[in-house]
Design a protein around this nucleic acid. Structure first.
Lengths: 362, 362
DNA sequence: CTGAATTGGGAAAGCGCATTCCCACTGCGT
DNA sequence: ACGCAGTGGGAATGCGCTTTCCCAATTCAG
């Protein structure tokens, strides 16, 4: 027994398919009360479930919203996904998920798949890149998106526009003030301290990473401090760990008596910061005693990470929600949603050393 | 300019739509090489993207696999989602996401929505419940699933079958040996210790929770120990925290000199364990010195949680993958995938007190 | 060299629904 | 009492694609 169709319902109710369609879906014309009840009852007794594919085909819209992330199990993306999901629920749409590992060509594929399914809108999360090796991929991705937009699709990308994407309408960017926030973090961290700053960043060309690095340096500069060293590594926990190992070596090497300043490590995202912290700990170093560490994003995982990590809070869920609704809304109040703002949060990981022993006496 | 259609491609290539369809999709009949090339080229130049809705309508299958979780940002579900996503990619399908907060009626809705979209299969994660207040919802959910299955859908639920679901074919359960593993954990923990055991469980009726509680008690019993107290609370971090607070009070109360055994707390999942640990810490208690804590699941978050939490490792990703492919496969080798197994992992949180001071001397 | 078995392409009938027309029927005004 | 706008339902068309069926052109056996 295949799923029952509208026609069957209509027949059972003794009306035409047209009428049945009108009562079961919000049509402009609402049939008479009595007949409507008959149809509804027939539908109920048949356990009728409208075929969304057919509906979509007929009205060319699918009630689908596509979400592209690097990795759904990454807390950063998971939080955004939650927001998108919420927005989708409000719009009575469903979320179609695609995970790419950040590879533009795989993102392009995802866009094509979404386009094939006639997704009403697409949300792309995950940092954009301007690396040379991604150039071709980016171009293709941009082309695919452009075509999607021209066919009436809506795209909203989180953080930074796609390189080479024309400013088609239906194309939105949810801006995240990475640079400003990083600058702010730097100035906060620079206050009344004497530390050497080091930045643990992602590969060159990753916008999110680059923006945060630039901002942080600017913050330091405005505080009258010299630019920080930058270690380039993977934009992952593993990358952070690796950098952390290198830094640990540097710290222990300079330890002996010499009056070196404490190291303050800024990792451009929280998972990297966690990795770095883990590396330091694995080398017997303690935070914040032997080094300060700060991250960025304020992912949920941080809640139970010790020492409590200083970071920049980003309303991840809200970002996801906004991306999803910005793309969906009939461009409703283009400035309808407030711009994304973050917040520097200083926690224990960057506290100044306890004024114990020597210092407190001195 | 709307997306180009198969017909347009066919016209441009000078063939019939039928032929175009045959070459652009894996049909049984493959047209001649020359003609195929013409078609492919036409498709390429037009940037043709097949309309998946129409395809689905025509062959009544959608290339969609529905995933139902409580909360996509929960690391437990996120890990499963990753597995499902991977399996989906292998099957060249896309994942449709639905988050319910564990409410059966909202799960029912999700199933209906998936059915409407003619999802090829549905994966349901998240503990089943047998609570009285969910009875009605469960029945409806079961009915909905049953209908979905009868219409050719495939369902696989993780952990424990839906209450009241008929054993329709197309209905699979990925079994997780919760009870056995919990028992195993208990015996491991019971070895050469003198501790009071306490179980922090979810609300009564949650199968996952109940199974683990039962298993743990059985393990204790087989080790000749008395049954542990059970604290019922929410199946969340907050629930764990609350219970942790209560336990902290109990510990500090009995602290003074009295020769009380150390408390060993088994939380039925990791997030609850984390909550409990956080609560203890907030009260100035230290793990494992003042109490031992163990969880279940081995979620990724644990990697960076200190003290390292003892737990039972579950191959979450594999579980998700298996659920997705079990449902998809043409029942291929019904025993094709190996049963899920877990592994007790003892870490620092349940170590016996350091044989320092008193004890080592004595 | 002819008839039968293939082969390869096209025509056409849906898949399940939305929607535009179109028609029969009311109720109103003058 | 007649015509008119207005109302409520049905017939038919099309969304874009798959697939069965059919027919012309080959090919091969006898």
């Amino acid at each position: 027994m295949a799923a029952s169709t509208l026609t069957e319902v209509a027949r059972l109710a003794g009306v035409s398919p047209a009428t049945a369609s009108r009562v079961l879906n919000g049509s402009a014309r609402i049939p008479g009360k009595d007949i409507a009840d008959r149809v509804r009852q027939a539908a109920e007794s048949l356990g009728y479930i409208p075929n969304a594919q057919a509906q979509g085909l007929a009205k060319s819209s699918s009630g689908l919203i596509g979400l592209i992330v690097h990795d759904i199990a990454d807390p950063y993306f998971a939080a955004i996904a939650r927001g998108v999901q919420e927005a989708a629920r409000e719009q009575h749409k469903m979320v179609l998920l695609a995970t790419t590992v950040g590879a533009p060509d795989s993102e392009k594929e995802a866009v094509a798949a979404f386009a094939a399914r006639r997704a009403d809108s697409i949300v792309i999360a995950g940092s954009r890149t301007s690396r040379a090796e991604d150039l071709e991929g980016n171009t293709e991705l941009a082309a695919e998106l452009d075509r999607y937009c021209r066919n009436g699709g809506h795209v909203s990308v989180i953080g930074h526009g796609i390189v080479g994407a024309a400013a088609a309408d239906g194309y939105h960017v949810v801006n995240v003030p990475n640079e400003e926030l990083a600058a702010h973090l730097a100035t906060e961290l620079a206050t009344s301290r004497e530390e050497d700053f080091v930045i643990v960043g992602g590969p060159e060309g990753l916008f999110t990473s680059d923006d945060r690095i630039r901002g942080f340096q600017r913050g330091l500069a405005s505080a009258g401090l010299p630019a920080a060293d930058v270690i380039r590594t993977d934009f992952t926990r593993a990358g952070g760990f690796e950098a952390g190992l290198a830094l640990a070596a540097r710290i222990t090497a300079s330890q002996p008596g010499t009056e070196t300043k404490r190291l303050c490590i800024f990792a451009v995202n929280d998972v990297m910061a966690i990795g770095a912290a883990a590396a330091l700990r694995s080398q017997g170093l303690r935070i914040p005693r032997d080094a300060a560490v700060a991250g960025f994003d304020d992912i949920e995982t941080l809640r139970d990470f010790r020492p409590a990590l200083s970071t920049v809070h980003l309303p991840l869920e809200e970002i996801g929600r906004q991306a999803a609704s910005r793309a969906a809304g009939p461009s409703a109040d283009d400035a309808g949603s407030p711009p994304i703002t973050g917040q520097v949060i200083l926690r224990r990981s960057t506290e100044v050393a306890h004024p114990t022993s020597a210092e407190s006496v001195a």
